[in-house]
């Protein structure tokens, strides 16, 4: 059997909220060491990768590896039943046809249970090799989210440039061109690999979808290397990581 309990169920709710506009049907892999999920968006230019380690759960038991095919759209509807401060328990039998979700308030006088039907999916699994990212930056997730939203009003595409002393987000649209440059000496941002600079362009529409995860972590880590998808990574406190990958664009 499989059973995983999180004291703060809103974390799981936030994760589902943060991926539901990117991926619809996914396989969640439950193993004795934790839960993971990897799925591409319908146009195959973005990829979501989630890993939650068993240590972060209040209770975790998984007797054998299970693949839980689930509609994220439907799971997001069920997550509406999770209230602030509720715990959440996910459980199923060894050959499951549904996943049971139990939410309980702190006083233990209100329990909500819902069985979500599982589906069989033929999903492609992509192997992501160990990549040496030449540019990495960690910045405030709220600031990154705000910046992407504001730039999207000006352009569909943003060019990222990360150097030794600054990170620059440049846009060019019908109304003109401009950039936001953040010095790395400022508290908001810091580079860990100062030696190289990479410039890559990305679709702001996707970055805005990724930024739905900003409430999961105060910080976001951006990793880039030439001709490689951008990695936008949120650390989910003591539980694991939510990573988004985005293929770069060619600017004409």
């Amino acid at each position: 059997m499989f059973e995983a309990k999180l004291t703060d169920g809103t974390i799981f709710k936030k994760i589902i909220e943060a991926i539901k506009d990117l991926v619809t049907d996914v396989n969640i892999d439950a193993t004795p060491t934790g839960l993971s999920l990897q799925a591409m968006d319908s146009s195959h230019v973005a990829l979501v990768n989630l890993h939650l380690g068993m240590e972060g759960f209040e209770r975790y038991r998984c007797d054998r590896n299970l693949t839980l095919g689930i509609s994220i759209t439907n799971l997001a509807k069920v997550m509406k039943l999770v209230n602030q401060n509720d715990s959440i328990t996910l459980k199923c039998e060894d050959e499951p046809t549904y996943l049971t979700i139990v939410c309980q308030n702190q006083k233990h006088d209100r329990t909500t249970q819902f069985n979500v039907n599982l589906i069989t999916l033929d999903s492609e699994h992509l192997g992501i090799p160990e990549t040496e990212y030449t540019s990495e930056i960690t910045m405030n997730s709220g600031e990154f989210s705000k910046l992407c939203k504001e730039l999207y009003a000006l352009s569909e595409t943003v060019e990222f440039e990360i150097s030794t002393t600054f990170v620059k987000f440049a846009v060019e649209g019908e109304i003109g061109s401009g950039s936001i440059k953040i010095q790395t000496s400022a508290d908001e941002a810091e580079t860990s690999r100062p030696e190289d600079t990479v410039k890559l362009s990305f679709a702001l529409r996707y970055l805005n979808l990724f930024n739905k995860a900003y409430s999961l972590s105060n910080q976001v880590k951006l990793s880039m290397a030439a001709e490689t998808p951008l990695v936008v990574e949120y650390e989910v406190e003591s539980l694991g990581t939510l990573k988004y990958y985005l293929a770069p664009k060619i600017t004409d």
Partner: peptide, 14 residues
Amino acid sequence: SKYQATMERYYKTI
């Protein structure tokens, strides 16, 4: 502008 490639070009299907 367009995409350089979809994810399949970067990562191997396993």
